[in-house]
Design a protein around this nucleic acid. Structure first.
Lengths: 203, 203
DNA sequence: TCCATTCTGTAGCGATTGCTAAAGAAGTCT
DNA sequence: AGACTTCTTTAGCAATCGCTACAGAATGGA
């Protein structure tokens, strides 16, 4: 079952990766089709034939981002022996990722569409949903900690997960503002003081 | 020394306030001149005659925002008896402000330009500078706490200030995502656990 | 009264936006 | 070979962007 017609002249996966990097750095609104086609090495009709629209391309780029950049820190969180260690692993992995010299700084999910224009409401809601699911992943890890006995049964894991996410969001913006890796690492040190304390028995 | 020529037909201060609200909600890129003139009740030539350009108007809007929205929480921080109480007052005042029903959610300084397009680099850097000065204000309050004796001399106040700012940045995004006031309040509770602990003697 | 000055309205500038029609190129099918 | 299908190219669409030329309106000064 071979494909008919003229074969595609570019690597779709590689083009998507390039698009992801541009969206990551410039956000959704800040990225034009011209910028995308230049980075992807193709012309607009090829982009639209392969990806449908700017919004559809962005959603695919977000999915790729979550797979490549989002999953590893989450796996580090799940693989840690305790919930507190998991949260710390998550935060530290993200600090490293947010300050990687070879990539745009900060988290794409956090920074790509914070403005509130009616036109890009769909994009904004989509990213907000991704952020909520990230928070849910933290809460699930804390719940497992309760089951494992390393988080007190009475702890408000929803509030604690919201706190961890809040710190993560803030770290992304700090990274965009040019904060150094050690600076963000020191912030995580402080953030973990609260986590450790709240996870301690009879807190 | 009266003004010559036709007098201005609108209240400049009120028009600026309207512009601020639009920029606050939609960000810099997300706000068009048409949207601004509609909200301000004027036509483009009047806007340009009174404010110069979109960027100049935005900078004035930011200055107004800091005066109206930013100063009160900072004063609350400075007026508190201890540095820890000051940080808590700052965070709680901001949570109330970020979730005010009558205003756009979150902080304008944090949310108005997170994307990284070369065109709006000036705007982005300008806001980043405002964020840095907010962090500096927290650090100064912590330094006063050291002088007053309610913050240990050995405490790393730069790192602690960065931590507080990180939480603040995160709170803004959480507010934009629709987080309720009680939810953000609970996040502040958790954040303060770290602050209280780090400010405790011999920490 | 007449001029100078300044603001306001209409109308539209050049540039850029996301996106696409139309034609040619490069394959598989019969 | 020739039809069919699919991709790529050129060129440009309508809409919107930030901004402004120009003429009319409203004031103060002489």
């Amino acid at each position: 079952m071979t494909v008919r017609g003229r074969p595609r002249g570019f690597d779709r996966a590689e083009a998507l990766h390039r698009a992801m990097e541009v969206f990551w750095e410039h956000g959704y609104d800040g990225t034009s089709i011209g910028e995308l086609t230049a980075a992807m090495g193709i012309r607009p009709p090829s982009l639209y034939a392969a990806f449908g629209s700017k919004e559809a391309l962005f959603r695919e780029a977000v999915a790729l981002y979550e797979e490549q950049e989002g999953e590893p820190p989450l796996r580090a969180m799940c693989g840690a022996p305790t919930a507190a260690a998991g949260v710390e692993a998550l935060l530290r992995a993200n600090v490293l990722a947010y300050t990687d010299q070879d990539k745009p700084t900060g988290c794409m999910i956090v920074l790509a569409a914070t403005t509130y224009t009616p036109i890009t409401a769909g994009i904004r809601d989509f990213l907000a949903e991704q952020r909520r699911s990230a928070t849910a992943a933290v809460r699930d890890r804390l719940a497992r900690g309760q089951a494992d006995g390393d988080v007190p049964p009475g702890a408000d894991i929803d509030a604690l997960a919201a706190y961890v996410s809040t710190v993560q969001f803030g770290l992304s913006l700090q990274a965009r503002d040019g904060a150094a890796r050690e600076e963000l690492s020191a912030v995580v040190d402080r953030a973990m003081v609260a986590v450790e304390h709240l996870v301690r028995p009879t807190a």
